[in-house]
């Protein structure tokens, strides 16, 4: 070719006989500097993320003398679950030595109803916002979303007063209601966007067939919403289980959820700290969300991504 481009010129000159015989796929060395850099970075980052998990588990399986030896890298010499048993049944928070078990059951009692109620209300909200808009419905929604960014501290005190006036302050009901309220923005957004993505003709056809608000919701919309329910379920179960602030404010001492009890066991214990028990308690508290995370896999990713991406 006469009009060789200046850009490709250099490499054209470099075209040797070897290249003239090039055939098939480009030769690719197994180790390139690029690959080595990528994988070493990934491994270094992975170690940062995995190290605490490793430490948490190994420490919980060690005995105190072993821990005092001062090597948190070491695997337990004689792994045993003594610390786990103690954390579950008899670890002390102040004078109260009942372990984490009551906190676990409180968390269960809070998480299950809060999850169900908040998801149901949000699903209805999302449905009403998309298919049954009324004057002002979008304004309510906008305030709801904006409100989700406001720090909880702004609402806490007046809500305590309201709960006290209603006579539910310091009960499980109060925590459940609070979780329902503060789960509403994100879940409503989730359901609203999901229902908006469904074909509107379906809703219109049901209207023409004479179905009303609730019939369409239960018989048309819900059966099609399984994926978004799974996402919402994951979001709520982990979110509510992990809550600390609402539990400590609204539940009352008898109803403290697991996170609050865990913090009390570790941070307000009397006497010599038992690090193996502390870590066992931490592992136990983390197990539920970890199980949800590892079982749900991609759904969890979808959940956090859906929570972040606005309509």
């Amino acid at each position: 070719m006469s009009q060789t481009s200046t850009m490709a010129g250099a490499s054209r000159v470099a075209a040797t006989n070897a290249v003239q015989e090039a055939r098939g796929p480009r030769p690719k060395p197994f180790f390139t500097p690029r690959k080595i850099i990528i994988y070493s970075l990934l491994v270094v980052f992975s170690m940062y993320y995995l190290f605490p998990l490793y430490v948490m588990f190994t420490t919980s399986l060690k005995s105190m003398p072993e821990i005092r030896f001062g090597n948190i890298f070491a695997l337990p010499v004689a792994p045993n679950f003594d610390a786990w048993v103690k954390a579950w049944t008899s670890a002390c928070t102040g004078l109260n030595c009942q372990g984490l078990a009551p906190g676990f059951w409180n968390s269960v009692k809070i998480t299950i109803p809060s999850t169900i109620i908040s998801i149901f209300i949000a699903a209805v909200n999302g449905y009403a916002l998309i298919n049954w808009r009324f004057k002002g419905s979008e304004i309510f929604f906008a305030i709801l979303i904006f409100g989700s960014f406001i720090p909880y501290q702004v609402f806490l005190y007046p809500m305590v007063i309201i709960a006290r006036e209603l006579g539910i302050f310091g009960t499980l009901q109060a925590v459940i209601i609070v979780h329902t309220i503060f789960g509403m923005p994100i879940l409503t957004l989730l359901f609203r966007n999901y229902f908006a993505s469904l074909p509107q003709e379906l809703f219109k056809a049901a209207r023409v067939d004479g179905a009303g608000f609730w019939r369409i919701f239960f018989e048309i919309m819900l059966p099609m919403s399984l994926p978004i329910f799974v996402v919402a379920l994951i979001l709520q179960v982990t979110g509510i289980w992990n809550d600390f602030l609402f539990g400590v404010v609204f539940a009352g001492t008898q109803n403290y959820p697991m996170t609050v009890q865990l913090n009390n066991i570790v941070n307000s214990a009397q006497g010599t700290p038992e690090y193996n028990v502390n870590m066992a308690a931490t592992v136990l508290t983390g197990l539920v969300p970890l199980a949800v995370y590892f079982v749900s896999g991609k759904w969890f990713v979808r959940g956090v991504a859906a929570g972040a991406v606005k309509g």
Partner: peptide
Amino acid sequence: LDISDGQIFIGGRNVTWLEPKDRG
């Protein structure tokens, strides 16, 4: 796309292993 077998010539040059920008 990396091919599995065969050759590609552009302007008489064997470009089978060349980067897109160098293929003219």
